[in-house]
Design a protein around this nucleic acid. Structure first.
Length: 347
DNA sequence: GACTCGTGGGC
DNA sequence: TGCCCAAGAGT
């Protein structure tokens, strides 16, 4: 890499952004003042999540909880259920915790410095910088996966991720402008999303092409270099559908760990071999469906048997939820899949 | 630094 | 189809 070569990215990038910026529901139009609540909510929803997925969820969310105060007053169970299907559920817990901290300690307003934001739950380096820049116009070095890719290519940084982040961040700092901080940050996102894409980058459309080290080498797609990932192990489990008088037994998962704090169908630990009916929540005439549910997580894949049974007996192992309104229970996708299979009984 | 933590879409 | 990827944070 040639770190000393002067690159002036902000000016051509902002010029490009003025012509090609995406209209997004959480974005202020030119001349408008951004709403910090919407900026924050969008940044959290967009963590590891695509714009297409976030768009409708954002609209539903702000209609229900339009401000920090509204969210701070919400019940945790409602917030978790509203997040169902979006994944990374710690985001929802932290979102509510932050809203309550903002109400209690910050007068109902988001603090406007990167440092103060960084102290709130769910604000890491990226989100604190992005909110400071986008909502408050503060100069901040905003580094997400888009910026990593753009900067690694621009400077032809070949240190593999994640170790290479230090060099990428340092390079990013050298091209981050003082003015139009929010526009610049979002311009980098839009460029990474539409032009400097992970595969088949559209270099002919890029406003920085004439300065791009990776393009000069002829291999833009080779950047950023990444360390190979570990193989994903396979696990097995059984999910239990226990029905009683038109209601199904739901449990609440522990706050910490996978799918933490979410409503769920009963299931035992997921292990290297199928556990069968070992962890059934009650004695019943369980029938294991022939079809299985397959589900992929980031770090392992899962094969699940679905066992169904009817019972007459009330238990206090969880809540009996009306089957007819199960889609309102806020089940994570994995359990929604199992529920659909159990209800169809097309074993 | 290395893990954990979801989900849907693209190729 | 299986793998990679996406506006990362917490431990």
């Amino acid at each position: 890499m040639d770190a000393k070569r002067a690159i002036t990215a902000a000016k051509p990038l902002l010029h490009w952004y003025d012509r090609h910026r995406r209209a997004l529901p959480w974005r202020a139009l030119p001349g408008e003042t951004p709403d910090p609540y919407r900026v924050w909510l969008s940044e959290v929803m967009l963590q590891q999540t695509t714009v297409a997925t976030v768009r409708p969820r954002f609209a539903t969310w702000v209609a229900r909880w339009p401000s920090f105060a509204d969210l701070a007053a919400a019940d945790e169970a409602d917030v978790m259920a509203a997040w169902a299907g979006l994944g990374y559920y710690a985001r929802a817990r932290n979102l509510l915790a932050a809203a309550r901290a903002i109400a209690a300690k910050h007068g109902g307003q988001l603090p406007d410095t990167e440092e103060a934001l960084r102290a709130l739950p769910g604000f890491g380096d990226y989100t604190a910088a992005a909110v400071a820049a986008i909502a408050f116009g503060r100069r901040a070095v905003v580094v997400d996966a888009n910026v990593e890719r753009v900067v690694a290519r621009l400077f032809a940084i070949d240190a593999p991720l994640p170790g290479g982040r230090r060099a990428i961040r340092a390079a990013a700092a050298t091209i981050t402008p003082e003015k139009r901080a929010g526009d610049y940050a979002q311009a980098m996102m839009d460029l990474g999303s539409a032009v400097c894409t992970s595969r088949k980058p559209r270099c002919l459309l890029c406003p920085l092409a004439d300065q791009c080290g990776a393009l000069a080498l002829g291999t833009p797609e080779a950047f950023p270099v990444k360390k190979p990932k570990a193989v994903r192990p396979h696990r097995y489990g059984t999910i239990f559908w226990l029905e009683r008088d038109g209601h199904v037994l739901l449990v609440r998962r522990p706050d910490k760990g996978l799918l933490g704090g979410m409503r769920a169908l009963p299931t035992g630990p997921w292990e290297l071999a199928p556990p069968g009916l070992r962890d059934a929540p009650a004695e019943a005439a369980w029938r294991v469906l022939e079809r299985r549910v397959e589900h992929g997580f980031t770090h392992f894949t899962l094969d699940l048997d679905v066992a169904v049974a009817d019972t007459e007996r009330a238990t206090n192992l969880g809540e009996w939820w009306p089957v007819a309104t199960l889609d309102e229970a806020g089940l994570p996708t994995l359990f929604a899949k199992a529920a659909a299979l159990a209800r169809s009984r097309q074993a």
